[in-house]
Design a protein around this nucleic acid. Sequence first.
RNA 1: GCACCCGUAGCUCAGCUGGAUAGAGUGUCGCCCUCCGAAGGCGAAGGUCAUAGGUUCGAAUCCUAUCGGGUGCGCCA
Length: 587
Amino acid sequence: MSSLAGELSRIAGAAFVAEGLAEELGRVAASDRPDLAQFQCNGALAAAKAAKANPRAIAEKIAARLKAEPIFSKVEIAGPGFLNLDLTDAALDARAATLMDDKTLGAPGTGAGKTLVLDFGGPNIAKPMAVHHLRSTIIGDCLQRLYRANGWNVVSDVHLGDWGLQMGQLITEIESMGTAPIYFDPNVVGPYPEESPVSMEDLETIYPRASAACKADPARLEAARRATVDLQAGRPGYRALWRHFVKVTEVGLTREFGALGVKFDLWNGESSVDSLIPSMLEDLKARGLTEVSEGAVVVPVAQGDDKKPMPPLILVKSEGGVLYGTTDLATVIERVRDYDPDLILYVVDHRQHGHFEQVFRAAEKANLRGRAHLEHVGYGTMNGPDGKPFKTRAGGAMKLFDLIEMGKAEAEKRLAEQGIGADYSIEERAEIARKVGIATIKFADLSNHRTTDYIFDLERFSKFEGKTGPYLQYAAVRIQSMLRKAREQGAEIGAPAIHSAEERRLILQLLSLGDLMASAEEKRAPNMLCEYAFELAQNFSRFYNEHHVLSEADPALKAARLGLCALVLAVLTRVLDLLGIEVPERM
RNA sequence: GCACCCGUAGCUCAGCUGGAUAGAGUGUCGCCCUCCGAAGGCGAAGGUCAUAGGUUCGAAUCCUAUCGGGUGCGCCA
């Protein structure tokens, strides 16, 4: 760890070791009480507890050693044995200057040499993306950006839902429509038409109808199950039709992911592992890991110490079809084979926790996961103002695309209210509205802790005041504007130097970015990035309110302040980028 | 029924590998623009951290029970 807190932890750790205590006790973190100190170390309390000794006595010994270190301007013992630490301004200035030259802005490098497979998005074929995909997409994309910034080799996979019962439902519905008989004629094995018999718009109406029909009529459901088995078994007409579904859907998905600025390395899906499934089943059976239960092939995953019933993972249904548990397990094999990852994260709705527990247990039991740690990164639901899952006014599921349009429209409204860009071109105004609208939605989503449900309130999220995406964009734009003016003046931009409490506070926060990125990674917690960005903007506003930069007469002081502004802008822009939020040139 | 998650300021939410006076946004009420974008800054008010016990020098954080809300529990994803 090359961060400032890491450096201090090493110094304090050495002091603990010199006293015959554990190095980990020297962990130094930003102080909970900034009014008392910049940093704190609580190791003496923990040490005293373990040794049943007097915490203050231990703290005294550690403090005596720390006082010999030139980096500290203050070493104090407070309360029962807290060590309060301040650094000299010279030490902070030196590190700020280093940070300015560091393209990574202090990124922790936690992922050096490590590979992450990140499974998120998970849209379904023939269905438009609904808002619950929004969370997976936005959270997953943020993690993708964060892990990359931290040095991980990241392989992201959209993992389409393209192989399950819905496919059979669509196929049977289209068969009953009678509009594309060639795909159902058993005497035809191809070639089939290049042109899809259905458009995305068609599918959007066909799927709900098919789904409802299967719900209402057991015979229809049975037919859909059979069609699914036939599709998975390779029936040519079904495969051809299915390929049209996939192709047509991907066009729409590309549009929506593009609008959100989200990219995937792999456009794989459940179907991608189709060819791996027979050998996997054979292997598991040969090793005695499967059994037949009620006509289905399953892997028992219950353990003796389970506190709840743990059903087996079903690999093959009684009528012969496979489920997403089957494809998920095969996908583990594929990912281990192709990437040998250290970590596989699944960014999926927390309601599927039980499913992943089954899959992970099966992967463990069958020794399929290589060295990868498998983890379900769950998230809560996005709710409407009534606290129930977000719906349209008509009561249907809200589509992601419509939500994005709403965000953009709201941004346009707000921008017009503020009289922003009245003299800009229509194109630039639209571009600003796009960036602001996306920022509104993303920041609102990411700033909530991912595991809890949250209430989507566009009115509140789109405000330019308070903890919102647009506010942060504005803060960045304002600094850009100032630096532009400085350039026009030909002013010099130097290294930051502390001359005031506001500057000190700002520099301390800038120097903590690396630790923040490491914590956010460890907890898979985008909301920590949001919190940091907002605090940075606030700290900057305080500084900005107290110190005039462009009119500063002392050239050295002016250069240092401009340098600080430039560094704040760089860090703020970086954090927003990690959140997937773009900053307009002006607004 | 069993299991998991959650109950923190009027509202929306952080904080939860135990640590000092529980934070932020919003809303309410005061101040602060002849100056870099006030979309801002400063300050005040607002809390028995659901309730009751327990562990601990120390609990919003860990344990137990209760109440309230959400979710899941074999051939959907």
